[in-house]
């Protein structure tokens, strides 16, 4: 498939995973991401090496991912907000064990059971750990159906490169909407797999676990993982800039919200307001450095997101008091219109 096709975001993730060599999926259905397991069930069960399993629960599914990741195979699971909460214990184990996998969260309105509409209120959960203990996920935030596909492929590469779980953080709108998408089979690098537990035939034993009863030993191990996170922070920060060069005001916004902000910026520019958009593509590692640099040039910074104010905390840390940081958010499944965001931009002036 190298021509443009119309696809739902959820389905584009599924096809991209297969193209990236992920033929193993464990999950449990939940709206608004169920088209993804449905798509993979249709495709994987027809493939000789395909494994698709609908587990009895989210907890079971993530632990199946844990096991499969230990064999070095590319493996994926997906869910939406409450389901991801159930998976966080397993995600912590996977991160601690330094295993590669891709976890998709098609975020919905919350907290609690909430609703099935688009939201970004799982930002803290995705970027600050979510589960227990000191760990990080690499978190990619697509803003289009094309990026849902592209970042899935990128996610598998990053997971293998750093032996770390990667999260694709979408939302209900990106999952449900169709847009034109081009799906190209990527080249897949050979990664070092001398750590896998796939039967010790002809070699010594490998052990994958996350238990270190001796605190001193565990602390040393956590420091090793954090040395890896430091490299990820140096190498893997991704973001996009829109009309930032001459901006007096900088908006920081990601995912579906950044598209609405972009339209609002076009409207504001027509009114003579010099405003630009910085869109984090990796929300962890966060584009702290570039935002800090813009804070030396602009008059104000505003974070716009679908929550009561989560990413704004990272923006404030980056700006570090140099200029005022404003916030505008809608939450619980409500999306702002471009005119609403425009009104907030006008208030900055």
């Amino acid at each position: 498939m190298t021509e443009k096709v119309m696809m739902k975001g959820n389905e584009a993730i599924g096809e991209a995973a297969i193209l990236a060599g992920c033929l193993t999926y464990f999950g449990y259905p939940i709206t608004p991401q169920s088209e993804l397991p449905a798509y993979l069930a249709r495709r994987l069960l027809k493939m000789e090496n395909g494994i698709f399993l609908q587990a009895e629960s989210e907890v079971a599914a993530i632990n199946m991912v844990y096991g499969a990741a230990g064999t070095g195979k590319r493996v994926m699971t997906s869910s939406s907000s409450p389901g991801i909460s159930l998976k966080t214990e397993g995600i912590s184990y996977i991160a601690s064990s330094q295993l590669p996998c891709v976890i998709v969260n098609i975020v919905r309105g919350g907290p609690g059971l909430g609703n099935i509409a688009p939201a970004q209120s799982d930002y803290f959960q995705a970027t600050k750990g979510g589960g227990h203990g000191d760990y990080r996920l690499i978190v990619l935030a697509p803003a289009s159906v094309q990026e849902m596909a592209d970042f899935t492929m990128l996610g598998f590469d990053l997971a293998d490169e750093y032996r770390n779980p990667v999260m694709i953080m979408g939302d209900g709108a990106l999952g449900q909407m169709m847009e034109p998408v081009v799906l190209k089979k990527p080249e897949i690098k050979k990664y070092n797999h001398d750590w896998v537990t796939d039967g010790a035939k002809g070699r010594g034993q490998n052990l994958i676990c996350s238990i270190y009863l001796d605190p001193a030993e565990m602390e040393k191990y956590v420091h090793e993982i954090y040395a890896k996170y430091k490299i990820i922070e140096e190498n893997e920060v991704r973001y996009e800039e829109y009309l930032c060069d001459d901006a007096d005001y900088l908006i920081v916004s990601y995912g579906i919200t950044s598209r609405i902000v972009r339209t609002s910026i076009d409207l504001a520019r027509k009114k003579g307001i010099k405003v630009g958009l910085l869109r984090p593509i990796t929300v962890w590692p966060f584009p702290t450095k570039v935002i800090s640099e813009y804070a030396d040039k602009v008059k104000k910074v505003m974070a716009v997101e679908l929550s009561m104010g989560q990413m704004v905390e990272d923006v404030r840390l980056a700006v570090n008091g140099k200029v005022p940081v404003e916030f505008f958010g809608r939450t619980a499944g409500v999306l702002p219109s471009c005119n609403e965001v425009l009104a907030e931009i006008e208030k900055l002036v």
Partner: peptide, 11 residues
């Protein structure tokens, strides 16, 4: 003609 902003039509 421009990249689509919000896919959800409120206006």
């Amino acid at each position: 003609d421009e990249p689509v902003g919000s896919p959800i039509v409120t206006e």
